[in-house]
C-alpha cells in the first residue's frame, strides 16, 4: 500500500472544478485510489474517482488529505495526483 499526503492548494477547497480535474486524472489510472482527511481511519477513506465523494469530503484550502493506492505504479501515480491537489486551479 502506497500512501502520500497533499495540502489542498485551491483557494476555495476541493470544489467542483479542482475536483473534476482530479477525478479525471484518477479515472485514467488502472488503480483503486482512495482519499481521506489526514488523521481519519483508512477504512473511512472515499473512492477518489467520485467527484461527489471528493466534494463531500469537504477539504478546504490548506487542509491535508491522505491518498492511498495499491498495485504496480502506485507510487508514481500518487506523486502525480499530489501535484494536482497542490496546484491552485482557481488561479486563472
Amino acid at each position: 500500500m502506497s500512501e502520500r499526503t497533499a495540502i489542498i492548494a485551491s483557494s476555495v477547497g476541493l470544489h467542483a472544478r479542482p475536483a473534476a480535474i482530479f477525478t479525471a486524472a484518477v479515472a485514467e489510472l488502472d488503480l483503486e485510489v482512495t482519499i481521506a482527511m489526514e488523521g481519519e481511519p483508512a477504512d473511512d477513506a472515499m473512492e477518489a474517482d467520485s467527484i461527489l465523494s471528493l466534494m463531500s469530503l469537504g477539504a478546504a484550502h490548506g487542509d491535508v488529505v491522505v491518498l492511498r493506492a495499491e498495485g504496480p505504479g502506485a507510487d508514481e501515480a500518487l506523486e502525480r495526483l499530489v501535484q494536482i491537489l497542490e496546484t491552485d486551479h482557481d488561479a486563472a
Binding site: 472544478r17 473534476a20 473512492e47 467520485s50 467527484i51
Partner: peptide
C-alpha cells in the same frame, strides 16, 4: 463549460 463538465461528472458518479 467548466461548470457543465463538472455537472456531467456528477451524473455518472460512482458514489451516486
Amino acid at each position: 463549460k467548466e461548470v457543465l463538465e463538472a455537472t456531467a461528472l456528477m451524473a455518472a458518479d460512482p458514489m451516486l
